[in-house]
Amino acid sequence: MSDWNQFKGDPHRSGVRRDTAGPDRVTEAWTADLAGPPGSPVLDQDTVFVGTQRGDCYALERETGRRRWTVETTGEVKTAPVVGRDGLYLAVGDGTVRALDPGTGEQRWETELAGTLESPLALSDGLLYAGHAAGLSALEAETGTPVWTHETETAVAGAPAVDRAADRERRGWGADPDETEIDLLSLDDAEMDEGVVDQDRVYVGTAAGTVIALEADTGETLWNAPTSGAVVDGPTVADGRVYVADEDGTLVAFHADTGQSWFTYEIEDAFTSSPTVLPAADATFVGAADGYLHVTDTTFGRRKLRGWLFSKKGVALDGPVRSSPVVADDVLCIGDATGSLYGVDVAGDAEDCDLDWFVDLERGIAGTPALATDALFVGTDDGRLHRLEWESDRSTP
């Protein structure tokens, strides 16, 4: 099973793949015509799965782009599917979650939820998490049986992010922060529960500008905290923090245990992607409508790139950002509304972020790329899915 089985590759929404050499240059291997603009693709060992705004889900051979099967639904399937060991799971816009056989497309079960679905699913430890217009629901992945539902006042915005205690122990997450470095901007606004350090959690953002932390197995509220606007693409969990960007142009890093604000970073336009974080490089990347890939440090949320006289807000692109950033080893890939896809060098401390390569796909990028070890898959607004592959001069770590 590929590691890139859901939106941004994993339940944390890290958007990072380290088991490959970053591409120095890319070439187009194939293009597949679909029935409508695609969403974000996902991968298993030899298949790429992608949904479309017209309600179709496609299974294509990764190497050739040949169609294996297509399933039609009664609503949009514009968010990333999830592929697990036992099934392929779709969030359909009409408010249903469907489980399919990944090999044939045959339906295994269908569960109707309380509201329409416009957010990617999350899969972790046998549970599916579905954000919808009425809240967040957890389902058994094997049967589709609802486990719990947490109601929200407004629709869930973007993909849920799941953080298991076992993952934190392996990676050293959740340590007590240095209080002198915390911007306590939201301490008075965050509502917290005690004793959340050892719990499995799922984080979700809402259209009303709220981030909510829930106990992953029960849906019990652990904390909630405000943002300035509707959350974009959902939270990202990294290094003991929860990063969220919103449509009002505010990036916030919350302490994952408490909901306290670690830092905020504000721009004059809307953010249009979720953050991608490289803790070892002390770098956070997030796309915006102003046509920049914004780059901040992870300690204070300050601009990281330096100009001749002043710091730079980030890497200038040709148009508004249309995909969340993803990282293959030390190359960050991001697309914009003009159809440009970029490879940005984020090696070391990511202090330069020079442009490594550029590909013009002619139509606006649709969705976030999926990364394999030697290729990426990305859709465009003209209803096409592209495979771009590489042979790198870089060596894997």
Rank of each mutant, 00 (worst) to 15 (best):
Trp4Lys: 02
Lys8His: 13
Lys8Arg: 15
Pro23His: 09
Pro23Ile: 10
Val26Trp: 01
Thr27Arg: 01
Ala29Ile: 11
Ala29Thr: 08
Ala29Ser: 10
Gly36Cys: 11
Pro37Asn: 08
Phe49Leu: 07
Tyr58Cys: 06
Tyr58Thr: 05
Leu60Ser: 02
Trp69His: 01
Lys78Trp: 13
Pro102Thr: 08
Pro102Lys: 10
Gln107Arg: 04
Leu113Gln: 00
Leu113Pro: 09
Thr116Ala: 12
Ser124Ile: 10
Asp125Asn: 09
Asp125Gln: 10
Leu127Ala: 07
Ser137Val: 09
Ala138Ser: 03
Glu140Pro: 06
Glu142Val: 12
Trp148Ala: 00
Thr152Phe: 00
Thr152Cys: 01
Ala159Arg: 04
Asp167Arg: 03
Arg170Trp: 14
Gly174Ile: 06
Ala175Tyr: 15
Leu187Phe: 15
Glu191Thr: 09
Asp198Arg: 14
Gln199Cys: 05
Arg201Tyr: 12
Tyr203Asp: 13
Val204Gly: 09
Ile212Lys: 03
Ala213Cys: 14
Trp223Arg: 00
Pro226Val: 09
Pro235Trp: 11
Ala238Cys: 03
Asp239Glu: 15
Asp246Phe: 06
Val252Gly: 02
Phe254Gly: 00
His255Tyr: 12
Asp257Ser: 11
Ser261Val: 14
Ser274Met: 07
Pro275Lys: 07
Leu278Tyr: 05
Leu278Ile: 12
Ala283Ser: 12
Val286Ile: 11
Asp290Gly: 05
Arg303Pro: 13
Arg306His: 11
Arg306Cys: 08
Leu309Trp: 13
Ser311Gly: 14
Lys312Asn: 10
Lys313Val: 10
Asp329Thr: 04
Asp330Asn: 10
Ala350Thr: 04
Asp354Cys: 07
Asp354Gly: 14
Ile365Gln: 02
Leu371Thr: 12
Asp374Tyr: 04
Asp382Arg: 02
Arg387Asn: 07
Glu391Tyr: 04
